[in-house]
């Protein structure tokens, strides 16, 4: 009984266990360095070798008219194969994991 009460009081004084999630704009829950989030694409560095299309398991990458690629993030499985195969390191998987948008267009990385 006494032990239980002591534990209850200690729990009252302790900080909450939960992690604060986006209470202020721009404040993100920290992610590890290797975290695979939304794709970032450096169009200038891309040479249009299309190796990423060949190895993408979900068919999320398509070609554009100017011989570059675009990424449909809503199809992406975040395996990171495109970032790994890219010879110019033009594709990276960033730390952004908030992937809710009103229009699909917002989830296409060009």
């Amino acid at each position: 009984m006494g032990r239980g009460l002591r534990a209850a009081f200690r729990a009252l004084l302790r900080k909450p266990v939960r992690v604060r999630y986006l209470t202020e704009a721009g404040e993100m829950v920290p992610v590890p360095e290797r975290y695979r989030g939304k794709i970032t694409y450096d169009k200038g560095a891309c040479i249009g070798c299309l190796l990423c299309i060949r190895t993408c398991p979900s068919g999320a990458i398509s070609t554009t008219e100017e011989k570059k690629v675009e990424f449909s993030v809503f199809k992406c499985t975040f395996c990171g194969q495109c970032a790994e195969i890219c010879p110019k390191k033009a594709v990276k998987l960033g730390s952004d994991f908030e992937l809710v948008v009103y229009e699909k267009e917002g989830m296409v990385v060009r």
Partner: peptide, 12 residues
């Protein structure tokens, strides 16, 4: 897992 491989479920 997240620290080592970058994903909690599908580690690749």
């Amino acid at each position: 897992f997240e620290e080592i491989t970058g994903n909690r479920v599908h580690h690749s």
